[in-house]
Design a protein around this nucleic acid. Structure first.
Lengths: 193, 193
DNA sequence: CACGTCTTCCTAGATGCACTAGGATTCCTC
DNA sequence: GAGGAATCCTAGTGCATCTAGGAAGACGTG
């Protein structure tokens, strides 16, 4: 019997494509097997179960995302870096809605800690913010604000949540501008209370 | 045979409780039927299918959320209104994670347009922002920024996405502060370009 | 009260998914 | 070419959504 040549890597890659096409929630073991012309059961030699597949997909997509961001931010600082970061983030979320959705799932913290991608994300984000001269706890607050805004915007935009007759890209640029101003005039924590 | 006294309203209410307990994704027709001591098939006299149930739950939760926000904002303006809005929003999302998750699903735009809740949300939001003296298209940009930040923060927080050792409530207050400042110093659109 | 009707809830069954056990075939290595 | 490991299979379980069609309670009308 001719073999299909499955492997964890090929499965994850196909799952990523499938997620972008039919949505992350519709990535199933059966559908993936069908795509390879193979029985469901065959996949379980390469992947423990559906959750395992999804987790691998999440880590894979997270790595892709941070690679793009890192490339965009490299060599820039201040507002330029922020704009590049934001642009790369939104572009990935819109180009790859399924993969981006995958990055949102709750993943075992032990796995996250093991993955270099997540650490790199933190490094890049905090590094970018250092240019604004923030210190803890303002730094963490600012990171949380950025993540929330970027994530929230991309989720709402790709879910079609912005119905008003106003260019979505323009609103995004405005939001990034606003964030830059906020970071420059951050309401700093006083050290003595 | 004794009747269970099912109705769409009771089903949706039970589904809402169930969503908060076991997560929105785990609300199933079978589990809901089990909760009423009734067969799965019996629910299909009241609800068309699972998607119908979820849509009803989403609209129900959306109504609850905007009611809370309206009550919190009533009689306030400016920063007070913004803080009240933000507080009511986050409180609901944390108290009712399942219902809040329900409000995120993609719902047929025709149904949304029919629902008074969504229109009320827009009214309240735009009304609150008018105090900052913004005009279109800045108004829409600001609404999108607010929604994104609130939504993103609540999603990330309730998904356990904020791992750093910093009080999550404090970061939220800081974010709301930052948004207030942003709204006061909004980078306005010049009319002539 | 008897009758017909509508609603509610049922049984039975089709279909699709995740997942396991265990067997067969192919590939790699020595 | 023989042994062992990896790959893919058949067969089957359990749980989910959803449909078709039937029985029995609730309800209004004469």
């Amino acid at each position: 019997m001719a073999r299909a040549g499955l492997s964890v890597e090929r499965l994850v890659a196909a799952a990523a494509e499938m997620a972008d096409e039919v949505g992350f929630d519709n990535v199933s073991v059966s559908a993936l097997a069908r795509r390879f012309g193979v029985r469901d059961a065959s996949l379980y030699s390469h992947v423990r179960n559906l959750q395992d597949l999804r987790t691998r997909l999440a880590l894979h997509a997270g790595g892709e995302l941070i690679d793009r961001i890192a490339a965009a931010v490299a060599g820039r600082a201040g507002k330029e870096a922020l704009t590049a970061f934001a642009g790369a983030y939104r572009e990935y979320a819109l180009e790859h809605p399924g993969r981006y959705a995958a990055t949102q799932i709750r993943v075992d913290q032990a796995l996250v800690a093991d993955s270099p991608a997540l650490r790199r994300t933190a490094e890049i984000t905090y590094g970018m913010l250092r240019a604004y001269g923030l210190a803890e706890p303002d730094l963490t607050d600012a990171v949380r604000l950025l993540r929330s805004t970027f994530h929230g915007y991309c989720v709402l935009e790709s879910a079609g949540g912005f119905g008003a007759d106003r260019d979505v890209r323009a609103s995004w640029d405005k939001a990034v501008d606003a964030l830059h101003i906020t970071l420059e005039h951050w309401p700093r924590e006083r050290g003595d209370d």
